[in-house]
Design a protein around this nucleic acid. Structure first.
Lengths: 245, 245
DNA sequence: CCACTAAATGAATGCCGTTCATTTACGAGA
DNA sequence: TCTCGTAAATGAACGGCATTCATTTAGTGG
């Protein structure tokens, strides 16, 4: 199981490869790649914050295909099995990343703006964050909130905003879930190739759809994914707004 | 040793190739599981329809974890490499499955019912089909329609329905995309565990959210995923309906 | 009749996540 | 101060995965 992050433990950032002076290595391998010998090191090399940061760096460099336990270990100058002293499985690493990313979602508007614009800002921010991290979506979808304290914190802020806006209590969760579902699906949509709707050789047998695609392209303000997201989001905001008392 | 080969071998693990049993085969080749010798068989063993059917059977029995190229080959009584004469990669297998499933989505209402109820039926059907197949969603999201003729056919029917209902042409694709995004996200939601919103020990620090969860549970009509889907879908239908001319 | 291609086998590849025995260091209790 | 339990590292596995390749065999067009 994933251990909840301790409040930023002193963190001892990666100890400089060779601590100055105190003890010189006898066989001092002066080349950059000093090999650590087996056994517990004097100062811990790994912690959850470091693992999370390294995972995020790998993902930004090579995408989620680049995030393997071996690559993660290599980037931390550690044997792969060492990771398992801090994490139970690769899924735990994904959870760490997810927790980090959720904290990037902007919920500040709920404290300062009317409900409609607060929801709008939150939703766009949420979509933008996870459009870059769609492989996490299947993980989030099945993730009990207990395991994700920062996600839970986001829900608290959002649901408080809904409540303050006069939303009937028994519909708050459903409305948030519906919005989230739309956001996750739309995040995938952002990653779709530009020509996804090119019906190619079948254009003649699909006149209605092909015409609609061409008409959208002709209008063509903004990326199609953004236009669709805006259209759906405004419909949801409008529909949900009517539920307020 | 008693050695009975199951005629159709349901889920029984195959005997290891190096077991002594293999030697006995020479003296007893008469039972059902005849081993095919190398080289092209007189009649082709594999085709795309058979591969698709076998993949669907594996998925229904063991989920998507059970769908491996090795398992697929085994269920078709074929060596794994034989599959690659018909399919370029495992992704192709998933595409075959996706194409098959899309044909199961019910679009008939667009021919017979008013726009609102047609969209409603289509959306529920679409969600239900893919709720059982969420691992396909990342594949669909990036899939050019050219590669999925039946998906394209579905789009044609749906867009024709929107057009006939008076939808402005340049918004048809965006509306469908928005609905689809909501549907895919909601399909994930169906698979979530029942206690996903149990905030556990953090309940006291999240009063608004915890209260909303409890209130939903108290009302408790139908599954939460269905309630949220209905709420969002009706909002989208209402909002989009206003666009009609 | 022969060359070519299609469709099978079977062996091998490299990568993946994960496990396990082992080594070493730290810290608490006797 | 010794000692013992626990934490954190190494390094060598393991089985499973998708995929590739050489090989064998059967049908087909020229």
């Amino acid at each position: 199981m994933l251990w909840i992050l301790p409040a930023e433990r002193p963190a001892m950032p990666a100890p400089p490869a060779n601590s100055p002076g105190i003890r010189e290595r006898e066989t001092a391998p002066k080349n950059g790649a000093e090999r650590r010998r087996a056994g517990r090191p004097a100062a811990a090399v790994l912690d959850l914050a470091g693992i999370t940061a390294a995972a995020l760096r790998l993902i930004s460099e090579n995408g989620y295909d680049g995030l393997t336990m071996a690559a993660l270990a290599r980037s931390l100058h550690v044997a792969p099995s060492a990771l398992y002293n801090h994490v139970e499985s690769k899924r735990d690493v994904l959870l760490l990343v997810e927790d980090h990313l959720t904290a990037l979602v902007d919920v500040t508007a709920f404290a300062a703006e009317p409900w409609e614009s607060a929801v709008r800002k939150w939703a766009w921010s949420y979509r933008d964050v996870f459009a870059e991290h769609t492989p996490l979506i299947p993980v989030i979808a099945v993730l009990p909130v207990t395991d994700a304290p920062r996600t839970l914190a986001m829900y608290e802020t959002v649901s408080a905003g809904f409540r303050a806006a006069g939303f009937p209590e028994e519909r708050i969760v459903s409305a948030i879930v519906a919005l989230e579902s739309f956001i996750f699906g739309s995040a995938y949509d952002v990653t779709a190739p530009a020509d996804i709707f090119d019906s190619g050789s079948m254009a003649e047998s699909t006149p209605s759809f092909t015409g609609a695609v061409r008409s959208l392209a002709a209008q063509g303000h903004g990326k199609p994914a953004d236009v669709a997201f805006s259209l759906g989001l405004e419909a949801l905001i409008g529909g949900f707004g009517a539920l307020r008392e």
